[in-house]
Design a protein around this nucleic acid. Sequence first.
DNA 1: AGAAATATGTTATTTTTTAACACGAGGGTA
DNA 2: TACCCTCGTGTTAAAAAATAACATATTTCT
Lengths: 252, 252
Amino acid sequence: MKKERIEEIAEILDKRGKMTLEQLEKEFPNVSQMTLRRDLYKLEEDGRIIRVRGGAMSVKEVQKVSGEAYTKKTTINTDAKIVIAQKAATLIDEDSCIFLDGGTTAMYLAKEISDIKCNIFTNGIAVAMELAQKKNVNITIVGGQLMKDNLSTSSPAAKDYFAASNFELAIVSATAFTPENGFSCSSQMESELLKMVFQKARHVYMMLDSSKIGKINPYTFAHISDIDVLITDDKFPREYKTLLEQENVVVM
Amino acid sequence: MKKERIEEIAEILDKRGKMTLEQLEKEFPNVSQMTLRRDLYKLEEDGRIIRVRGGAMSVKEVQKVSGEAYTKKTTINTDAKIVIAQKAATLIDEDSCIFLDGGTTAMYLAKEISDIKCNIFTNGIAVAMELAQKKNVNITIVGGQLMKDNLSTSSPAAKDYFAASNFELAIVSATAFTPENGFSCSSQMESELLKMVFQKARHVYMMLDSSKIGKINPYTFAHISDIDVLITDDKFPREYKTLLEQENVVVM
DNA sequence: AGAAATATGTTATTTTTTAACACGAGGGTA
DNA sequence: TACCCTCGTGTTAAAAAATAACATATTTCT
């Protein structure tokens, strides 16, 4: 089917770096050239490849050449984040009303979410941009000052926003976690915003890849008891898991 | 000479990210298309650009925005918009406080703005994202519901935002204009938001490429008398210009 | 100066891409 | 069940762009 084929094309392209349409036709003899073209077009829209004369090339390939600076940040523990995002995506129901933070994990979640009718609040513009591709998702952006490092907003005025809006579920992530210091982040405003979110939300799911564990950031916005579910990867330490479960947190 | 030209092409490309051959021809009117093609070929050999259908894109650009889609649905009257954006960019002073709308013209303006210390409010997340690359620009996003077609937000709650913030200058654009119906757009919420902006702003500059002229959209948010400066391209009809100048609008 | 190398322009040809329409397979609804 | 709709796909014609090939400068070097 379409989706698998597109995925496969992306993989091949990532692997080989560059392919001509002719080569792709050989690889996929049972579909027409036009279909492959359309697939490439879609992949280009998603920013995964660049179409060039005669075929296409992988964006990763281009980035590999010399781009370390920016790329690095987004590739920390990418695989784990994607796994976490996929898990989280299964937890989103139709017609639900959700807050999503602006972190990279949320970004991956935005990619993974299926296009169902739901309402999502977010303070991350990259997240919002990703979600904008889903037809059925209603997106609301929390305004405020933009932090350039993580492309998310925060402001004291967010309080007013939240006053007039409701959401049952908040799916957030932290940049650091220890059992003693709880979940922390590096920006005070963000921490304040998240505290507000926690007050508003009926349930809170925390996405936390294992690289965050044992680290401490300046502003704690939540403790173990504040969350309902922790979504993590399989490198998550067993002892922490039992610890969390003792506090009635579901770890998945 | 060849070398300087190639260098210049590389620089332009790094700045704009992507250019068509047509645009390059305008930039270099004294050489033939073929020469430019050969230049691009050379630059590709050197690994600085990637040639794509119709033109080329900077490798840096690809490396920079890994998540964003480079795809251009935004190719309507691009040249005019860039010209307008360049003009508008010259009007932005250090330490000023500006509202910028979320349209494509504003997007180009965001690219052209030099990295000076200033404060920019915007309701366009694509605009905000572009601005995020400037170190010295302080960005505030107006929250609200995201409209997927133009990636800008609008909401009744914006009023509250504006209540607590000031800006001297608003630089906006419209999707349609006639002298009788004034400046109009297709979304009621956006129109309301712009009206609020107009109330708050001391000065209003309107960016309007000539393709918008003579068209009417459902919601009028301003008339000629509401704006101070109109920034347009050289296809702007002379008779309209005199008309505007009669109403003390500066046309540039 | 004059030959060789380099750079540019012009035109025709080939290749690639797009646009437009058609068709059939599901999926939901009255 | 019949109908309508959307979606994915294929086919073809038309447009656009890239290349190749050749002609004509322009520079460089001896």
